[in-house]
Structure formats: C-alpha cells, structure tokens
Design a protein around this nucleic acid. Structure first.
Lengths: 228, 228
DNA sequence: TTGACAAGGTGTACGGACGACACTATGTTA
DNA sequence: TAACATAGTGTCGTCCGTACACCTTGTCAA
C-alpha cells in the first residue's frame, strides 16, 4: 500500500467502490466460508469478507478476482456477481458502495489459505457458527447463501464444489450439506446421471475396508448450466 | 442542476456511481420499455434508460426511485435491483459504475410520461423494436428481460403488470406476451386460481358485444412471492 | 323478438416425472 | 474365510402438467 501524494478532485462528491467476495467451500461435510481478520481500522481485529477498493481502470469482475487472489491466494474458481450494497452508513470512513460476489471452491483446494498484508489472519468458518462480522457482511453472506441454495435447484452449480474426480457418494454428500437434508441414494443417482453431465473415469476409488467406488469427472468443468 | 463551486477531493481516484432503470409495461399487447432521449452529451439525442448520479447521502434504492420519478413521473411501482455494470470505458466522461434496476408498471398507468429537464423526450418503445441505445444500455435491457422471464416461472411478479382490477383473460394476455407463446385457457385458469392469490371483486366487466367477464383483484398487491 | 356473434367459462383423461422403498455386490481386514 | 462397510441397482404408485371441445351469456342488428 503506497502513500499517494496527489489527490483526485471532482465537482460532485463520489462514493468509494469496493468488491467483497463470499467464498464457499465444503470442508468436513460442513458448508464453510472464508473470512479474513482485519489488520487495520475500521473494525480492526474483526472478521470480514475478503475484498477491497476498485482500481479506477479495473473491471468489477477483475477487481473481485484480484482481491480474492491477493487476500487469500485463491484463483481460477467460479465467481459470480451477487448484489450491490450501498446503505449510506455501512462504512464509517466514507460513503462506500460494495459490489459483492460469491465464489465456490472445490473441497480439496486451499486447505490453508495464506494471509495477505492487510489481513491479520485468514480462515474457514462453518456457515452454521460464524463469528460476529464487520460492516454489513453478515447480510451479504445471508444473501449469498440464499442464492446458492436457490441455484442448486435449477443449475449445475454444485459441481463447482467438486474436485476433478469424485465419487457419486461424495457428490451426494455435497448436495445433502447444501440442502441440509438427506437424500435417497437411488433417486439421487438416477437424477444426476440422467443429466448426462458427468462421465466415469474408468478408475475405482479405494478407501477404507469396503467396496471401492467408481470415479467420475464433469464433462465441462467450467460450465454452469441452467437445467429444467 | 446547480453549478457547484467547491470540489471534492480524495487520496485515491473514485468512480462515479449511477443508477439506471429498465421500466417494463405491457401496452397494446406488446412488452414495452420506457426510454428517455438524452438532452445533453455524451450520446446527446440518443435514447437511453432513465437514471442518473447517486447523491452522496442517498441509498441506492432511493436513487433509482428518485431518478425514475424525476425523469418520467413514475413512482410507487415494483422496483428491484438487477445487476451492476462497471466496464472501464462504458462512459466516455469518467469511470462510471451503474447499479441497474428494473421496474414493472401496470398497463394503464402513465399513458404519457412527462419529460424532465435533462431529457428531450420520453416514450414507450416495444421491446421487439428498440432504437439504438446510448452506453451499454442495450446489454442492461437484455439482462433485465432475461430476469423478468425467468421470474415469471417461479414468482408472482406478473401481477405487478396488472391494474387494481382485471379479468383472467387480461392476465392470460400478459403471460402470453411475456412468454411469447399462447396458453391453454383452461390450464391457465386452473393454475392461477389454485395459487389463491387473487379473488373475485363480484363485479362484471362489460366490453364489446359478448358475455361480460368477472373482475378479479390481487389479495396482496405489493407482495411478490416465490411459488413452487 | 330472435338469431348470430364473440368472448367467457368449464372437466376429463393421459403420460411423464418424482418419491418411497430393500436387497445384492464387492473389496478389506482380522 | 467370515464379518464388515460402503457401492450399486429397479419397481411401483402418486401427483402434476398438458392436451383437448363445448356450452354460456350478454350484445347488437335484422
């Protein structure tokens, strides 16, 4: 962070614009969110979403991706604009408009994200027991969660949580965690396979003292399709 | 518009923030959008969405509602945030982030919206044959239309197009226009009535030389519910 | 007055999708 | 080789969505 010597002037007051990102993953069969502990005021020492100020020549999507990469080391993941929060006093420093995003990262990636310069700490927190959050970030998370669950129903967004290869049981587990209910194994498999979006790798996954499971992969891993 | 004497300075460059609104209605059995002709540069003389700069102490929703009221005289209608557009060169003057909204207005309201000071003209344009538009407003309209059609399926948003009392044939016509396909009368009525969201007024609508239709009203006109 | 007109209003039957439900298969390990 | 633990599989009933045609009722003109 450099200390600028010049200032930037406008005939009318301008708000600051930031992006903030709600990063979801599934860890230990729990939906979890990535938070950073703020190293500086305001809300110093409190947990917050990764995010920061928009550069003047930077696209919004690029800003969200950059902040995510800088503050947590995560990149190349599914990232979608969520909503723009702009209540007048949501930031005590000045008027700040936050264009929020949500991201989905596979289970195995980034077991321990790294903390950046302006973050005292970075860590995964189960959605069910989040700490108190800075600014209006709890509202942002609530909306992101609502959107995520809604999209499960009519898109293939859940595959964004999966690693490159996975078993049907693992996939079912992801759906069960997100929907917070158990699903019938036969119906689940019937529905997923009928979408014809995943294919067998031909290999088997051996783990524990039981029958090995077939491994699958997503045919088009980056694509999120609307179904039904 | 006053000419300010002071200027506003920041240690880092700040973008300007605007709201723009896509106003839909149904006129003469066509989906139509309200556009204003720009009185000032840039894009002077071109058609654009109603909208304008965010006041520094104004909430985003309030800004969208105010701009809509000031530029077109419309108020009290359904208004929902759509998406935030922020490509770096979408406005030639300076960096501008636009938080966009869409609004739905009943068929009969505002047959002739009034033009405001910074608009040379205001008028309804059929969605199927829009003129060339200023900035990236064509993209904004495309996204608003997509959202509107998607919401038809899983919400009661279509009622926002209806006047206080209406007939089932009129309601069906709205759905047919939005979905761009004709619907079976019996199935349509069965589905709508099973929602139990509208009730008979007890009156009949006489028009033309045929059997009069029953009038209905929405039980909770301001509410947009998620169905299914 | 009556008959033609034009839109309003109504019920049934079929097919497909979804949900409930229980047992066999297979590799591991003791 | 037997117990264990998870993998993997098919049927049947129900409900919902869709297809489909005729009678009703007020108006208007002859």
């Amino acid at each position: 962070m450099r200390a600028p010597k010049e200032t930037f002037s406008y005939p009318y007051p301008h708000p600051a614009v930031t992006t903030d990102v709600v990063v979801f993953t599934i860890r230990d069969e729990r939906l979890s969110i990535l938070l950073v502990k703020r190293a500086n005021p305001p809300h110093q020492g409190e947990w917050a979403l990764p995010g920061g100020f928009l550069a003047i020549d930077e696209d919004l999507d690029a800003c969200a991706a950059r902040e995510l990469r800088e503050e947590t080391g995560i990149s190349g993941v599914y990232l979608e604009q969520l909503y723009t929060f702009g209540a007048t006093h949501r930031d005590p420093r000045e008027r700040v408009i936050s264009v929020t995003y949500y991201a989905l990262v596979p289970q195995d990636a980034l077991a321990t994200p790294r903390a950046a310069s302006d973050a005292a700490d970075v860590g995964w927190h189960p959605f069910e027991k989040l700490p108190d959050l800075a600014f209006d970030h709890a509202d942002i998370i609530a909306m992101a969660h609502q959107r995520l669950v809604a999209k499960l129903d009519y898109s293939t967004i859940a595959f964004q949580f999966m690693p490159e290869v996975f078993t049907l049981s693992e996939l079912q587990c992801v759906y069960e965690v997100l929907l917070n209910q158990s699903l019938d194994k036969r119906n689940f498999r019937k529905r997923i396979l009928s979408l014809e979006l995943i294919e067998e790798t031909g290999k088997l996954r051996r783990s524990g003292k039981h029958r090995p499971a077939r491994e699958y992969r997503v045919k088009h891993p980056k694509r999120v399709e609307i179904i039904k």
